[in-house]
Amino acid sequence: MLKKYALLLGAVLALAWSSTYASPEDDRMAFENYFTTKFPGVPLNDFKNGIYSVDPVARADWEQIEEFPPYELAVDAGEAEYNKPFANGKSYSDCFGDGAVRGQYPYWDGERKEVITLELAINECRTSNGEKPLKWNKGKIAELSAYMSYISRGQTVDVKIPEDDPEALAAYERGKQFYYTKRGQLNFSCFDCHGTGAGKGVRLEKLSPALGHATHWPVYRSKWGAIGTLHRRFGGCNRQVRAKNFKSQGQEYRELEYFLTYMSNGQEFNGPGARR
């Protein structure tokens, strides 16, 4: 009886929700509004600091850590790698110029009909110059991305969804659906934790708001003891709810990054970051 009622309620809700079209920009404004309403004390430009924007106690520790940033070594290693010529005599600068290009990613490639992320572009730069691709989640690729993010600090997140290409919008919509869909044995959507649950505690650990989630990658995580990429984090959050994670830099996670970064349009790129 109750079950039927709940199902019916769900169907009615879903119908009401889907009956009006929301553009990506409508989505983004509602998203931003959701978090600024939920955290009225947090300035809009502070959400890029993740959990530290809403947890003053953890923030004090973090500010101390940032005095001797744990990602510094990775940035240095990334710089050295960036300037090392490939076997064919060319180098990353032939693909990325001075390397301060964080603000251009992710973007929709209208010819290839797919989302291009910074890490994907780094590996494609390598393979097109006869070098082996790097592993996606950590190590050299994260160091390169850390260096490039570091020298791009202050660029504004400005992801575009070309209006003349319905396939770009479809990719965005798939990323969005992914974000709100419950998965895994524990039955959580990303938004269940980083929206509904944002700012609330899971024991000692609080959950960070999703606004600003894509601004500060890669991240040096104390738990990893190393620097890692955004897709590594996606995989961890999927597995944590006992869902099978998807391939790093596969279609699902790139479209998820496309959606999630779009939601942070207007925020500032401030990577690499340091997190617990």
Partner: peptide
């Protein structure tokens, strides 16, 4: 587990959109 995952996906095909902030 596989069957539960499928049932979950079927529920979610309808429900996910109700969580999107408006």
């Amino acid at each position: 587990q596989a069957a539960d995952g499928i049932a979950q996906a079927e529920r979610e095909a309808v429900m996910w959109i109700t969580r999107v902030p408006r």
